[in-house]
């Protein structure tokens, strides 16, 4: 799949943002006043910025509100609702906490649950795609959740929890890569089923339907990027897991180092999110003789 910057930013940042907000809703860290304001601002900026960034992907962003209409069947629509409601709930919670100094604990818990729900709905947009076998798997929501929670914990300054979550994330991500690699092959969809010609012999794409590009080849058949996948996986895991872990777990605490840990994690998360798209193969690539 084409790793569109807007989508990578959207999923990564909003994931982090909702992850952080979830921690804040549960009262970790138990902040108030200006510190709380800073934490919430960061959470909203990430979550909201991600959402805004997602509209850059739209052909007609001016009609974006229409995306709220199909919650009964569309995960994207559901995500829109969850994100909006979560923002509102967390907004009230934050307002009460920062401005009024009141901690509405049930609201915070509700907000945290909604944050998780939002992350889940986001992940389901991809998970539901049967056409992308790598995504179409229970591990996708968990992966999204793991990034959000690990990153959230890191942002929330959970120095004990964060290193553990980061390690868990790294382990899960490694497994997800590993198991995802085989998924297209085992999905049952092949050029043979795509053409229905499989029972006659080996099927091979001879000539594409056009020498010019088209939306599909640009959007769904993105072979070039996958060449560097191995290198990028290593870079990703070093950045999102190893460096932050070393900083948090091995090195003495310092604000600067903590900032580096966060940035490193973010960079690594972006790399792995880039891979999430770039490595994902859409079955339509079969028709074009490419995956």
């Amino acid at each position: 799949m084409h790793p569109a910057v807007s989508i990578i930013l959207f999923t990564t940042l909003s994931g982090l943002g909702f992850g952080l907000l979830a921690f804040l809703g549960l009262g970790y860290p138990n902040v108030e006043g200006f510190t709380a304001f800073v934490f919430f601002a960061l959470g909203f900026a990430l979550a909201g910025g991600g959402l805004i960034s997602s509209t850059f992907h739209l052909g007609h962003p001016e009609r974006a509100l229409k995306a709220f209409t199909q919650w009964r069947s569309s995960w994207l629509s559901r995500e829109a609702w969850f994100a909006a409601i979560t923002m509102v709930v967390m907004g009230i919670y934050a307002f009460a906490l920062v401005i009024l100094g009141i901690r509405l604990i049930p609201l915070g818990i509700l907000g945290a649950v909604l944050c998780v729900g939002t992350i889940f709905t986001t992940s389901m947009i991809y998970t539901q795609m049967k056409t992308v076998p790598r995504w179409h798997h229970w591990s996708t929501p968990i992966l999204f959740f793991a990034y959000a929670i690990a990153g959230g914990a890191l942002l929330a300054g959970q120095t004990t929890l964060a290193p553990m979550l980061i390690l868990a994330l790294a382990a899960f991500q490694l497994w997800a890569w590993q198991s995802g690699d085989a998924r297209f092959r085992t999905s049952g969809t092949t050029l043979a089923t795509a053409t229905g010609l499989g029972n006659r012999g080996d099927v091979r794409s001879f000539e594409p339907p056009h020498t010019g590009g088209n939306y599909l080849t640009r959007e769904m058949v993105h072979v070039v990027a996958r060449k560097h996948a191995m290198k990028l996986r290593i870079i990703g895991i070093v950045l999102f897991a190893m460096i932050p872990w070393v900083i948090l777990f091995v090195l003495p605490f310092s604000h600067i180092l903590a900032a580096i840990a966060v940035l490193s994690h973010l960079a690594g998360a972006l790399v792995s999110r880039w891979l999430f798209f770039a490595e994902a193969e859409h079955v339509v690539g079969l028709y074009y003789g490419k995956r």
Binding site: H57, G59, R63, A64, K130, V132, T189, Y215, L216, V284
Partner: peptide, 24 residues
């Protein structure tokens, strides 16, 4: 009503949908 999100094209296994390059 189309916002040009492209999701439907992702969901189609056959490559039967194309976003118009100009009209989006």
């Amino acid at each position: 009503d189309c916002i040009g999100c492209g999701l439907c094209a992702w969901a189609c296994p056959y490559g039967a949908r194309e976003m118009d390059p100009v009209e989006k």
